[in-house]
Design a protein around this nucleic acid. Structure first.
Lengths: 168, 168
DNA sequence: GGTGAAAGCGAGGACCA
DNA sequence: TGGTCCTCGCTTTCACC
C-alpha cells in the first residue's frame, strides 16, 4: 500500500461521508465491482488509512448543550510532568479532544458539558485539579459554523469522479 | 423517542465506538435480540440522535501533517457580515471545523494542511482574504493527546453493562 | 491488478406474545 | 415493548483472467 490511486481516494471519500454503505453500493459509486472494492477497503484498513468507523451523535440531543474550548497552561514543562498531565487529561470523558500546542506547555482542549453550571463545576473540580496546571482560559462555542471534521482529500490527486469505462 | 433507556444508551455507545458492527453483533452486545435492536437503531437515526456514520481517516497517512487552531477576528460584527463570513468559511475544505465563539466576533477554526509552507500559503491566500477578517491567531498542534471526539454518555444514566436476564 | 460466481449469513419485514 | 421466523440480498471468499 504505497500510494493511493483514484479508486482508493474515492473509497476514502465515500466512507468518510457514509461509513455504513454496503460494499455493493460503495463499489458502484467508485466504479469498481464488488470484490476488488472490498479488497481495497480491507487493505486501507490494514494499512491504517482508515482508523475506525464511528457514529456521529448529536451533542444537543443527548443533553450536552455546552462545547468549550479550553486552554490549559502547564506550571512546569518537563517531560515527566507533561506526560503525566497528558495521561490524566486523556482519561477524562468530558474532554472530547486535546492537543499539545507549544513548547511553552499549553494544551488546547474541547470539552462538553450539560450546561454552564455543569461546566463550571467540572472546570473547578476536575480541570483545575489536574497536576501541573497553572492557568486556564475558556471560550464557549456559540454556534457551529462547520462541524464533522471531514478531512479534505483533494490534495491526494485530481479527484475526478470515476466513471466506469470512460477513457482518459 | 422521548427519553433514552439503557438499551438506547448502550446502542449509542457501541455504534459511536464501532459503527460497522453488524446488527446481530450489536444486539448481542447490548443484550437484545436482533429485530428490536435494529428497530431501535432506526428510531435513533430518525429521531436525530445519530447524525451519520463516518470513517475516521488517518490525517498523517494521507499527507496532512499540519493541524492548526486558528482564531479569526471579524472586522465588523453585524448579522449580515457575520453570516457571509460563516458561509464562506464553511465551504473551505481545509477547514475541518469552525465555531463562532463570542459576541465580539471571533471564530475558532481547525485547519489541516500538508505542511507549514502549505498552511502558510493557505492562510495568506484564503483565510486572510475572507470578507470581514480583521485578525488571525494561529497555534499548531504538536501532538494529539486525545482525539476522535467521542462524546461521553455517562450523564444519560447509570451505564451498567446490560446483561441479559440478570435481575436488578 | 482485474472479473465472475458460489455459499453462508445478516438485514429488514411480517407477525406473535 | 421484545421475540421468532422467513426471505432476499449482500458479504466474503473462491478460482481464474
Amino acid at each position: 500500500m504505497e500510494t493511493l490511486d483514484k479508486y482508493d481516494i474515492a473509497i476514502l471519500r465515500e466512507l468518510q461521508a457514509e461509513a455504513r454503505l454496503t460494499n455493493a453500493e460503495l463499489a458502484q459509486r467508485v466504479g469498481l465491482s464488488a470484490a476488488p472494492c472490498w479488497r481495497r477497503v480491507r487493505a486501507l484498513e490494514e494499512a491504517g488509512y482508515i482508523r475506525g468507523y464511528h457514529a456521529e451523535i448529536d451533542r444537543h440531543k443527548i443533553g450536552l448543550g455546552v462545547l468549550a474550548f479550553v486552554r490549559l497552561d502547564a506550571e512546569r514543562n518537563t517531560g515527566d510532568l507533561t506526560l503525566a498531565m497528558e495521561q490524566a487529561i486523556a482519561q477524562i470523558p468530558e474532554v472530547v479532544s486535546c492537543h499539545y500546542i507549544s513548547g511553552t506547555g499549553t494544551f488546547e482542549l474541547q470539552v462538553v458539558a450539560r450546561d454552564l453550571d455543569s461546566f463550571s463545576q467540572f472546570a473547578r473540580t476536575v480541570l483545575l485539579n489536574l497536576p501541573n496546571v497553572k492557568d486556564m482560559h475558556t471560550s464557549f462555542s456559540l454556534g457551529e459554523v462547520k462541524a464533522g471534521g471531514a478531512l479534505p482529500l483533494a490534495h491526494l490527486g485530481p479527484v475526478r469522479p470515476v466513471v466506469r469505462g470512460a477513457a482518459a
